[in-house]
Amino acid sequence: MADNNNPFSNLEAKFKTVENKPKKEKVPVDFKKHYKSFITIFLAFIVIVIALANVYVVKEGDYKIIRQFGEVIGVKYEPGVYMKIPFVQSVTTIPKYQMNYKLSEKEINTKDKRRIIIDNYAVWRVVNPKEMIKSAGSLVNASARMEEFIYSVVRSELGQLEYNDIINDENSSRGSLNDKITAEVNEHLRKDKYGIEVVDVRIKRIDLPEENEQSVYNEMISERQKIAQKFLSTGDADKRRIEAETDRKVKEMLATAKKEAAIIEAEGEAEAAKIYNLSFSKDPEFYSLYRTLESYKKTIGADTMIIIPSASPYARILSGYLE
């Protein structure tokens, strides 16, 4: 019977009831009965892990090379999700996009026996992965072989040009050199079936060996000075020719003007004489007087001394006697 004065009497009664109950014996798990289920679950897990480990994805910019016991049996070109055979097949990736390749600096000789150092770069890509693997084995070997072809073609092409033709961008002989080198390199790669293509080959820099730089620079300066002197000489010759031509034209124009002026003057004098004759014929005495007065103007100046008889008509007119 619970004690009303004890607040924990109910709990104590419950604990006593639990303690008085008979304990149940634990039944051991029978693993033999469930081992098949465990094995099934484990095998399913292993299969899922192996399946996931052998799934591969082909991206837009990749080729996937399928090898079986080391031998190439296929290439996946299209993007998607694929699966390979576990433990038998392996998958490697080759880029489909364009790649840049910096070539090693090489020294070559020009047609005029100048030594120059060429620094090139190439843009290339894989177009046939099977051929590339069969011929080169790897991207590293393929790019090395491509570099050999590029160097051979560059050395051959620049060896046919003189140094000034190579460095002078205005010279038309170098106009399509890069395109020509690219076409020839691709021809060699196609012939040997390397499965790669060169998109572009460019000459990035042309340098001189250090021991030749100063002498070449001095020669370039001398050459430019010769060209400048040639332009100056040509300019002076043109100047003298233009001045002589201008002087000749001026003389011709002056001669023509003088001739025309003389003709006009003669015509004017003739017309004036005609008018004089017409006018003076009406009064011959007045004309004689006018001519005498005109002669005075030409013969008598500020310091002129004339000794003539005072009774002469010339002196009489000069003295004012007209009769």
Results as ranks from 00 to 15, higher is better:
Glu60Asn: 13
Glu269Trp: 07
Pro309Ile: 02
Ser90Gly: 08
Ser176Leu: 14
Ala270Ser: 13
Lys297Asn: 09
Val88Thr: 15
Tyr321Val: 14
Ser215Leu: 14
Leu322Thr: 15
Lys251Ser: 08
Thr40Ala: 13
Tyr287Trp: 04
Leu254Asp: 00
Glu285Cys: 00
Val153Lys: 03
Arg316Gln: 14
Leu293Met: 12
Arg67Thr: 15
Leu11Glu: 08
Ala13Gln: 13
Asn54Ser: 08
Gly137Cys: 09
Gln68Gly: 04
Trp124Phe: 07
Arg240Gln: 12
Ile117Asn: 02
Arg190Glu: 03
Ser156Lys: 15
Lys26Leu: 08
Arg114Asp: 00
Gly175Leu: 10
Ala13Phe: 06
Val250Ile: 15
Lys204Trp: 03
Asp238Lys: 10
Asn120Thr: 11
Lys130Tyr: 00
Ile48Trp: 07
Val198Tyr: 02
Ser156Tyr: 07
Lys102Ala: 09
Ala255Leu: 12
Pro284Gly: 03
Lys191Val: 15
Thr246Phe: 01
Val57Asn: 05
Ala273Met: 12
Asp207Phe: 03
Lys16Leu: 12
Gly80Cys: 06
Lys36Met: 10
Tyr296Val: 04
Leu139Val: 13
Phe15Arg: 12
Thr246Cys: 00
Pro28Leu: 02
Glu271Ser: 13
Asn6Glu: 09
Gly268Cys: 05
Asn212Trp: 02
Glu294Asn: 14
Thr110Leu: 03
Asp238Trp: 03
Asp119Leu: 07
Ser143Trp: 03
Ala13Ile: 15
Ser37His: 07
Gln68Trp: 00
Lys113Met: 10
Leu278Gln: 11
Phe286Ser: 12
Ala266Phe: 07
Ile308Trp: 05
Met253Ala: 14
Ala244Met: 13
Lys32Glu: 07
Asn218Pro: 00
Asp207Asn: 11
Phe8Leu: 12
Asp169Gln: 10
Asn5Arg: 12
Ile48Cys: 12
Gly175Tyr: 04
Lys96Ile: 14
Ala270Tyr: 11
Asp169Lys: 14
Leu289Cys: 01
Tyr82Asp: 02
Pro7Arg: 10
Ala266Gln: 14
Glu265Leu: 15
Asp169Trp: 01
Tyr101Gln: 06
Ile196His: 02
Asn128Gln: 11
Tyr290Val: 09
His188Asp: 03
Val250Glu: 08
Val250His: 03
Arg190Ile: 13
Leu11Cys: 05
Tyr151Ala: 12
Asn178Gln: 13
Leu232Tyr: 04
Arg224Thr: 13
Ile50Asp: 00
Arg67Phe: 06
Trp124Pro: 01
Pro284Lys: 06
Thr17His: 06
Ile116Leu: 06
Lys14Trp: 01
Asp192Gly: 12
Gln89Asn: 04
